[in-house]
């Protein structure tokens, strides 16, 4: 049986380095922009006291009653609840599926019938060697836990 490390098509170091530099540039530019460099102080908090119904504190009230912002938040609440219920369903499905799969496995302490197998379904390794790191990869018949 042939057992080799596979030829894999990965990413070239140049692409990784270029993307890393690009990512940092994007992060610097985003934060530079967000930290207030794009702000015109002139347009902030102009309360225009001479205009009717506009006075000190009016920005507070106006900002607290923007309907579409309120709607956006209500929408996010709804998304949270819908996704939360869905995620809970997924938790229960996996929990139950894991229990069913566990039921097919050998019980702890059940004698080894001498036909141990790696998790890859590959051939039987030498028993002594396979109790090493292979186990950590979920790979031997102890179920992968380290003491």
């Amino acid at each position: 049986m042939d057992r080799d490390l596979p030829e894999t098509a990965g990413y070239s170091p140049l692409a990784v380095l270029g993307s890393a530099v690009g990512g940092l540039v994007i992060a610097f530019l985003s934060v530079w922009w967000a930290a207030g460099n794009a702000v015109s102080a002139e347009s902030l908090f102009r309360v225009a006291p001479t205009v009717e119904n506009r006075g000190v504190g009016s920005d507070w009230v106006a900002g607290n009653t923007i309907e579409w912002l309120d709607f956006l938040i209500a929408l996010t609440h709804a998304a949270d609840v819908i996704m939360g219920v869905f995620i809970l369903v997924m938790v229960f499905v996996h929990w139950a599926a894991f229990r069913r799969l566990a039921g097919r496995m050998r019980r702890p302490g059940e004698p080894n019938r001498g036909d141990g197998v790696a998790a890859d379904g590959g051939g039987t390794a030498k028993p002594v060697d396979s109790s090493g790191t292979t186990e950590n990869a979920g790979g031997d018949d102890s179920g992968g836990e380290r003491p």
């Binding site: 934060v31 922009w33 967000a34 930290a35 207030g36 794009a38 702000v39 015109s40 102080a41 347009s43 902030l44 908090f45 102009r46 920005d59 507070w60 009230v61 106006a62 900002g63 607290n64 923007i66 912002l69 309120d70 956006l72 938040i73």
Partner: peptide, 18 residues
Amino acid sequence: WSKTGVMQFFATKTAAMA
């Protein structure tokens, strides 16, 4: 990030809170 960014668009602190 810095609330002034949002406040520029809405000219209000409460909208930034949203």
